[in-house]
Write a protein that binds this DNA or RNA. Structure first.
Lengths: 100, 100
DNA sequence: CCCTCATATAGACGGTTATCAATATGTATT
DNA sequence: AATACATATTGATAACCGTCTATATGAGGG
């Protein structure tokens, strides 16, 4: 994963409403109208957020009749978990009074 | 952690340059001048990013003489790891042809 | 067919942000 | 003190983003 790909995913998660949607979808599959009920935003704004979430791959959509069912893409989140599994090494650089 | 707190942290990580800095600090402690060498941005821009990283708590700074040593705050990243450890339940909502 | 409900799109607006050049501050070295 | 180096701050600018209203699209139901 490139830095750009990573920062793009974090950008998707950098909005409070989208985090709330993700949390809601964590426990159950939901349609847009149900999400809308619990959010304090207009319908077009929700549609905008859901598009961003789906485009990123973090959420998947399935059209069922009039409704669209949204659901977490857990594969993506498993990958994200790995991102934070880095190992930190306490190397001291810039010591000996020089940075060159 | 509230949704706002979470999205604020993701916002910090939503910039490609800051992701690159985080990655660089993953393996070793570095001063600003060393970070600057490997990045294609001006010194004031780096200073701006380092302030955002430090304010968020993801990175800590330590002034040593002329230099500022930056280092990952691994406690924060351990916490972030947990965020992605949710359990997904495949509840189907919106079934039976109604959303009400 | 018309009407209603669910969702998407278009366009406008205000606020935020990343970037830079210029400058300031602070710290060592000579 | 004077100079050089490391970092921070200021102010300006351009691009981006979240939000809304208005409108369009699409799918059932009567």
């Amino acid at each position: 994963m490139t830095n750009k790909e990573l920062s793009d995913i974090f950008k998707v998660l950098s909005d409070e409403t989208r985090v709330q949607v993700i949390k809601m979808l964590t426990t159950e599959k939901l349609c847009a109208c149900q999400l809308l009920k619990q959010l304090k935003i207009s319908q077009p704004t929700l549609s905008h957020h859901m598009r961003i979430l789906c485009d990123s791959g973090l959420v998947t959509a399935e059209k069922v009749g009039k409704w669209v069912h949204y659901q977490i893409n857990s594969q993506m989140f498993d990958q994200m978990k790995l991102i934070f599994n880095f190992t930190k090494i306490d190397n001291i650089v810039c010591d000996k009074g020089t940075c060159r």
